[in-house]
Nucleic acid binder design. Structure first.
Lengths: 346, 346
DNA sequence: CCCGCATCTGACAACGTTGTCCAGGCCCTA
DNA sequence: TAGGGCCTGGACAACGTTGTCAGATGCGGG
């Protein structure tokens, strides 16, 4: 009765505390703490009484107070671009599994590719005193993280390197992957190859277009400016870019698409056209094998990126004083048909 | 250099506090608090001194202490099955956006469809004193949440109803959607229709198979036991189930697949076969329009589910004392070809 | 029978923040 | 010029937990 009264009177919190449990069980505060934390030195009988009181009151330890006292939160933060993107879902999940194995909770937030929002999120996580951070950078300057890192927040960047600070980073071999993918198209006989990628402020986009240019140069092929398009990945823009390079004089006979979202739009554009055009995309896409033709891709392992980064993070947290390192994962060319289409005259 | 030294010397926090800032700025503790929280009553000059001290020391407010004092955390929890699933990514993102609009942070965790893990996660979130919870139940008994709800943790269930407790729930019209999808197949002339769905312990699976049976009954069609298969959504099992109902006497001429993952596997199976078989799937799938034939689906809006649930959650948090409600969102049949294939004899 | 030791228990301070309350100084008005 | 009100700043307690340390209790051995 008394309990109900207290509860309804104040909906926010007003939960039983260890003090309440202690009072009900007729023991001292510290004894309750001992029971809750399974510390030794409590008689079986006392323990039982405390457990009963806990159950009766519906007590749950307040981790905020615990954190305040102990200093660590057993939680890590993950800042990525967009959880709804099929590339980041598995990455996040992988980080979560590693965190879980270390008894930590994962808090993740989406930056929506907005540097300001990224910073806002990261600092909010720091204020919550996450033990560590995994960041997929949206911005290019991460000096704002210096005080945090100095204060002991373990930090690992993934997918793209940090800007203007020295920190661990785990990424795919974007340059090599793109170069290999484009080389594959060249090996099929293509000479006019287009590249459609993400905004040039994004590191992966730059690396991949660099790989494209390198492959073309390796083969002694000149690159027409009209064949290269970097910008937002909205379907409208990508569609326009693709159509532009597919029409006019010297149309491309093959396209290399710079990420999963670009690939999807390009597939749509190509599906509407008569003339077969070869396509290799960066990032694998679901059901890519079932389309006609199957989509040839340069695949990177998002889950592996996440796992590697998280492992590295906990290595830092476990006390290893490691110098910042750059870990690069290889990509894999998966041939499914679209990349093996030979050039055709318009 | 200095940074590295400080790091190793004391890994755990040891960050500046308001007290340090106050000392450095030559003001009282509370004045710093006022500046940090943008409370009125601080001269411009004092404020500037404090800001300088904050910047110089790299101070960041400790939210744990803040929470302890204020009682609310400005964070909500989301427990779902698997972030890597393309259905949950957008849902999570939608919840995050609503939370953000309310100034709250989202903490999400994957239950991996394991009731024990769900409970563990939910209680961990409660210990962290999230203000509210959005839960996609894995288990069937949520009585363990009673003390938390009584203590004021706002709670909304999504996608599936809560077990054995009375709480808000937002879900899709699984029964009606499946019924409509199957009726569509019947309208194309199909009489022998298979159903492959998720484990019968999952509410959505049960509702959808119920919808299937209702549609069959509406049309006066008997259902052969061999046509219905419920179980894990692993490709191997689904593949076997599909092949079973497609062979032997009285093979099905159409399949209704119970969720996105089942659909993907069934598409693979059908692609390998000569005889055309109609397919309607629950949940939309990316690129479903580009396959040959396009995949006809009963689509539910994951983001809308998330948004609705989160809105409801904040309604609760804003103090409305609402009786638990069940909100059902409609589904939409999207015809793309696979569902319009007429029956063919084996 | 008393002492020493081991085992169990509880009082108290501290973690970093915010709410309450009061003191002092200033300005304005009568 | 005195008094009152307003504005700014600071001392202090409290939030719920854990670490420290000391007290209480029981038991065995000398």
């Amino acid at each position: 009765m008394d309990r109900t009264a207290r509860r309804t009177e104040n909906r926010y919190g007003n939960r039983p505390t260890m003090k309440d449990v202690a009072a009900r069980a007729g023991v001292g505060l510290k004894t309750v703490s001992r029971v809750v934390n399974a510390e030794p030195g409590v008689t079986e009988d006392t323990e039982r009484r405390v457990q009963e009181a806990i159950a009766a009151l519906g007590f749950r330890r307040n981790d905020s107070a615990r954190v305040l006292r102990k200093g660590r939160t057993a939680s890590i933060g993950l800042v990525l671009e967009d959880l709804a993107d099929p590339f980041y879902g598995p990455l996040s999940r992988a980080v979560e599994e590693v965190a879980r194995a270390h008894g930590a909770l994962l808090i993740n937030g989406s930056s929506a590719e907005d540097p300001e929002r990224e910073q806002e999120l990261v600092l909010a996580l720091c204020a919550r005193r996450v033990d560590g951070l995994v960041v997929i950078p949206a911005g290019v300057d991460h000096q704002y993280l210096e005080p945090e890192i100095a204060a002991g927040v373990a930090t690992v960047f993934v997918d793209r390197p940090a800007g203007k600070i020295d920190a661990d980073v785990v990424l795919s071999d974007n340059f090599g992957g793109a170069r290999g993918g484009v080389a594959h198209l060249i090996a099929q006989g293509h000479r006019r190859i287009g590249f459609i990628g993400d905004q040039p402020r994004i590191h992966t986009a730059v690396e991949r277009v660099r790989g494209y240019r390198a492959a073309m140069e390796d083969a002694g092929l000149a690159v027409d400016d009209r064949w290269v398009s970097l910008g937002a990945t909205e379907p409208e823009r990508v569609r326009r870019a693709a159509e532009d390079m597919l029409t006019g004089p010297d149309p491309v006979t093959a396209i290399f698409s710079g990420n999963n979202r670009v690939t999807v739009t390009v597939i749509r554009v190509l599906a509407e056209r008569e003339r077969p055009v070869a396509l290799v995309g960066f990032d694998d896409i679901e059901l890519g094998d079932l389309l006609k033709p199957g989509v040839t891709v340069v695949s990177q392992d998002a889950a592996q990126l996440g796992r590697t980064a998280a492992d590295r993070l906990f290595l830092q947290l476990d006390g290893a004083a490691l110098p910042p390192e750059r870990i690069e994962l290889t990509t894999r060319l998966i041939q499914r048909g679209s990349g093996e289409i030979p050039p055709s005259s318009p």
